[in-house]
Amino acid sequence: MIVHRNRQLTPARNGWVDFVVRFALGGTAVAATYLAVQFLPWPAVGGILAAFPAVLASAVSLSGWRDGDHQAALVAQGAVAGMVGGVAAVGITWVALEQGASLGWALFGGLTGWAATSWAALQARQYWGRRQARRSQTGAVAGASEASRPGNEAKVEAGAGEVGWRVGNEAEVQGEAVAQSRAEVGTQGRVEADTKVQSGVGVRDWVEAETNVMPSTMMGTDAIARPDASPGVPGRG
């Protein structure tokens, strides 16, 4: 579990702060679009403001403020699928209007396209998360094995899905997990690793791996070295 260093300064976890920040950003974007379309010599340029990412900006800043940069980055990552849906909504509405559809029908088409595209993008993302989970599982085991060599401590960076795979949660939303492996001297081909989830879910787990290290070669060596002596393990999401 990550403890935020400025816990005292973070805003309360009730919905009001979110509501006010979204209200301010969204209201400003809508009012600015109106002004720009009315007064700029090119009304369509004003339309760009109608796509201002107010929700992304508020979600990233609130998340960064409360939970730190890593969580904010995950929020931004999650927004990519939603943005694809936004492209579909506006694109379909615009093309329908160009084809002579009424405003009502154009908006209906745009919103239907938005729902379908967002759903498809989320499904694709979940599929990708599951795929990453399988790959990172392999990477974590390989890293733990590497850590068992004398003088090494491997920092295993497992991809998006690993922890979710273990706890049966929505892995692809949580992003990456970092497993730090400590090799124990004289182990019988078994390495344990604590997995700390940076997103704050707080899952502890261990990775078991078969090692090829002969016990005699490890005698008297300090198996725990610098954390940055990473062997470059694959599997980062």
């Binding site: 009304p43 339309g47 760009i48 796509a51 931004a76 939603g82 492209v87 209007l97």
Partner: peptide, 23 residues
């Protein structure tokens, strides 16, 4: 609506890039 949508389409395409860059 057409004028707004034309500009907004450019903005929405840029939004995808913005989310990737922000991440």
């Amino acid at each position: 609506a057409m004028a707004v949508s034309r500009g907004a389409f450019a903005g929405m395409l840029a939004n995808v890039l913005t989310a990737v860059v922000a991440a």
